[in-house]
Design a protein around this nucleic acid. Structure first.
Lengths: 139, 139, 139, 139
DNA sequence: GTGGTCTAGACCACA
DNA sequence: GTGGTCTAGACCACA
């Protein structure tokens, strides 16, 4: 279920966080449901339990999951809301990166195209993709 | 001339690279001109010469500067071209970040606004206010 | 495993790069396998870890190895391809050196013999003895 | 007369040596003739006299030029012979480089082509170029 | 444990 | 003076 690339430059613990967030957004993990245990994930992903523990701790800190001591971790009631909040903070990173690129001569248009790629677009059809990012956001 | 934040999570040597690239793009350092020496920068920035050497080595590798051991470092003839090339590679990072954010429910519009900030926009992106996207942004 | 000559005029970090490339080409280090750690090599070779880090950084930049901070360095899937690519760039150095020697009166034949040495030839290059070049090589 | 590239990775003093050797091979500087003085070269090339002094010292050491204290430097009687001898030593460098490249998967054929480039060839016509390197080697 | 960054200080060839 | 290499030793985030 969780796709982890151990050779990625992105730390494994961050990948785990994103994968869990992704699964929550996709409705695979629903509010109130129990997440796989540390041991379970550790075995299935072949990853050190300490690493997974670090991811769970961060998700807990952000209010996305709730630990129930002795009985695993559960998806928070307002997990999706918290995920979007966390994502909004990452928008600052996007602005920062854009600022850097602007200094180096990259145009706003070039950046828009780069972003369009994330929406499966050719870079010209933002209008067509609105609200079609594949998530069930109705609840 | 070069603004370095030693407390930033961004490595100092990367900040130096970006600052030099920025100054080249701004025309402060022109093609063929000599850059400050390692020792000179080391003293003025209060940074170890090895760290600056690391930045210069990377800039050299990218064809942005040309070291002439014994007589200093010079801005390459095609420095600006090389800087844009290097920047274009960073656009992949932007796409990747956008993909992540899309997964977390951030819309293309939100990202465009974040990018607009890098171009001095007020955050309520110019084009978006022309009503051409059909969204009600009054609330 | 890695043969390093600290007295060579060739920088140690370059020797390490070449030795690792050589071992990959020989199949000693295979794609996906873990390389010795910085500290391990540092101890076994008696070389400062920073120097080895410099070699690993260059190999990383060329896509020959993939570091996974916290869990070691791995030989890239396409390491051999990348090594040949890197080697092809060095062919330019060979051409350049040949040009220099040509200017100084060294013939193409003499250079071919010099190269033949690298391929275990006796120095009197095989094809040349077939008399196909019309030279009298008996004196 | 002497072509020097200050930004080349090749040290300036070596470039001067090669340029003087080249001019001797071309017959521009003939045996017994006086070479330009340190000051003269320093001014015309815009290079530190110490650097030129270093080149002259090396050429003297190899018996290619002869200093006449107080009255400049002269091309040796057997300069061309000495130049070829010096060049032959560089053939070892060629062999060494070839050995390195062989290890990295470059074939003998690829190297022959690289060398052919130095003789203005397409890589296939070694036979056509014999003895046509443009030098007057009759004396 | 792993790789990555940084400092302090030395030494080198070169200009 | 210049850039380039190397060491010794510290500290960091990550696994």
């Amino acid at each position: 279920m969780l796709l982890i690339d151990k050779l990625s430059s992105k730390p494994v613990y961050e990948q785990i966080i994103e994968e869990i967030e992704r699964n929550i957004m996709l409705g695979v993990y629903k509010s109130g449901e129990q997440l796989p245990s540390l041991r379970e994930l550790s075995l299935s992903l072949g990853i050190n339990p300490n690493t997974i523990q670090k991811s769970y701790a961060e998700l807990t800190r952000c209010g996305i999951i709730c630990p129930a001591p002795g009985s695993g971790c559960y998806v928070s009631a307002n997990a999706i809301e918290m995920i979007r909040e966390r994502a909004r903070k990452k928008l600052d990173t996007l602005s920062e990166l854009a600022r850097e690129l602007a200094v180096l001569g990259i145009t706003e248009e070039e950046m828009r195209e780069a972003i369009g790629l994330a929406f499966g677009a050719s870079g010209e059809n933002g209008e067509m993709m609105k609200g079609e990012n594949g998530y069930d956001q109705s609840k």
